[in-house]
Design a protein around this nucleic acid. Structure first.
Lengths: 94, 94
DNA sequence: TTATTTGGTTTATATCATAAACTTGTTTAT
DNA sequence: ATAAACAAGTTTATGATATAAACCAAATAA
């Protein structure tokens, strides 16, 4: 009746990050931070978790001389995101 | 951009309970437990939280000789549930 | 040169979800 | 009648989570 919700995605900030990344090719840490309003620490931790789950890729490079962390959603991440939305619908369609 | 999600509702079990109660006049503990597949302990705790938030009412009575706890959604609960769904849509409509 | 800012990471804490153990009373079996 | 099993929850304990606070290294500004 109520399908299990993927715990990796059932988190406000991680879901926001995935939502953002689902719509773009890639996005860097600073941009994600701005768009979500998250603190650096929290964002850093949640990005790690999404990465550990294989839902996003994280590349550390430089933009000019400054470090720049770029994230992108993976195919597995896209699929998990879609499944999560489908599962959610079971909960919110009364 | 990403609205805050009501933490009372952003919980798998509490959301399932609200989803159930949104569709009926009332439901008792045992029924909710069956429908959600939750353990008694977890359900008890989460029902308390929904009740403390004013989202549901909880009445303890008897069905025959056995205790029976009946829950119903409140108007505030309905409104919170609707708002939560609206907020969620911002996250899942890429 | 000494701040200050940028772009993060690490660590600590407070909350949460869940399971396990317990309680109170009822029904069933002996 | 007594004991064992069951029903309907509650309370307590534990492990996971989210978040904030503190920290760090490099670059830029004063």
């Amino acid at each position: 009746m109520f399908p299990k919700l993927d715990p990796v995605l059932h988190s406000e900030l991680r879901l926001a990050v995935m939502s953002l990344l689902a719509g773009v090719e890639s996005a860097d840490f600073t941009y994600i931070k701005q768009q979500t309003g998250a603190t650096s620490g929290n964002l850093s931790v949640q990005i790690d978790k999404l990465s550990a789950a294989g839902y996003i890729t994280v590349e550390k490079g430089f933009k000019g001389k400054k470090p720049c962390t770029t994230c992108a959603i993976t195919e597995a991440g896209m699929e998990a995101f879609r499944s999560y939305i489908e599962a959610l619908k079971e909960y919110i369609s009364t």
